[in-house]
Write a protein that binds this DNA or RNA. Sequence first.
DNA 1: AAGTGGTCTAGACCACCAT
DNA 2: TGGTGGTCTAGACCACTTA
Lengths: 279, 279
Amino acid sequence: MRKPAPVSALLPAMLRALAPGARGVGVGAGAGTEAAGGAGPLYRRAKRALLQVIEQGACAPGTALPSETALAGTLGVSIGTLRRAVDELVADHILVRQQGRGTFVATHDAERFLFQFFHVERADGHREAPQVELLAFERQRLDGDAAEALEALRLREGEHVFVIQNRLSLQGRPVVFDRIVLPAPMFRGLTEKKLRERPGTIYQLYQSEFAITVLRAAERARAVPADRATARVLGVVPGAAVMQVRRTALTFGDRPVEYRVSTVNTARHDYVRMLSRPA
Amino acid sequence: MRKPAPVSALLPAMLRALAPGARGVGVGAGAGTEAAGGAGPLYRRAKRALLQVIEQGACAPGTALPSETALAGTLGVSIGTLRRAVDELVADHILVRQQGRGTFVATHDAERFLFQFFHVERADGHREAPQVELLAFERQRLDGDAAEALEALRLREGEHVFVIQNRLSLQGRPVVFDRIVLPAPMFRGLTEKKLRERPGTIYQLYQSEFAITVLRAAERARAVPADRATARVLGVVPGAAVMQVRRTALTFGDRPVEYRVSTVNTARHDYVRMLSRPA
DNA sequence: AAGTGGTCTAGACCACCAT
DNA sequence: TGGTGGTCTAGACCACTTA
């Protein structure tokens, strides 16, 4: 299903440099309590080392990591400890394990997009990938009006952003109107053409073109009457009750990378979330 | 912070009865592949054994479990394996570990209620425990009109349910109108008096009075115009855009225990969720 | 058959909490 | 001081994938 993918040759060297304490530090009688080298338990330091390598793009999404035995050796920790570090990265959706094949840096396939983040379902539970239509794309300066975007992206007034407007349809009916704000410096070289021609989801585009991985998001939702512009895009009467979801997407270190306002026509569809994890 | 809490004396015996395979079965050369006794890895069988004991109420919420060493001995597995089983139960919010004190069956404190499930925040991010007002309480038969509740609770038409209506206010302003449907047989003995006099959240009441633990919930949200009744309760004009959240709460084995329709006035407040877990 | 992740064990030591 | 959970190790074997 998935290409084996090559292993970066410099990765071991980078890891060795990040190794938690030049061998045998934090093990048994660690220096004092925890004021010594890094901080916290060994498996967490190992996790941080791996994270840094991944963040810095030393291994692109989809790439296979070295085997657990090799990683443990390079980092100077036991297999059990290394596995615990990887366990957490898997729980964070940053790595993916496949028995017999290896451990891979997670990618933004359509599945993940639909399930990890918000999704819109038909009232009867039917789920489907939306058809996307680019309505507008421009580069502009953030003005005071967009106070929300400004704060969410931690930008100052006047900084350059890309603004994208999309319409998402399910079974030919418009359901979601997305207005997306991206900090221009992080997405240098983004063009309308690239947006139109992207093969997968927009988060895959962020990842493949700009090495930006969206890890998590915070959302605030409210019900509002549709304004004229929204009503036109969604094909509802002005003033109709629609759902407005404001999302800030975050990458490594909780740095904000995208601010998005989604307006959803919930006449035939629901906005769905499962709380807490399944058994 | 928390009382030590006694340990049920019969617990070890119950566990021994559930022990995954009468000692030394699934270890090295297990009988065949997995068609033998239980199913799946040993730590999962250990987890199931613990779960059954907890479900059956052998140890009430807040109770301390026997020590990990003792549990491992009783179940006939190594400490590492036992710990892995407990790890998962902790991740599921069913157990809580406290270093130096012990492992406890989780309770529904106010914290958990506010954070694990939905929450409503003021637009500026301020969070606060709501003031609850009981508007109605009755026992009735489910009729065909309530098709949603019927399906969610997997009941047949004509079965008895309790219907509760609550109004939640923040800083004196009504914000949420809850209509709650409970299967009467599961909540035998529920009275208006108990509802009014409960000290904590309603989920704490379920737990303390009826031994029902809500583990997770599925939600579907939409924007709707407020009907007259809702408008009156929330103090908005009829037809105003409000958010309607339909939630099914589940307990062990994904058995539905509550169906709830929350209508939220999102004029001053947002409905908030963090997606994916924090770093 | 060789390599990878997945499970299980057994034991040592640490950090924390109660007494 | 003694008990609890938390971390770490080292090695054995299993299940799966690929060639």
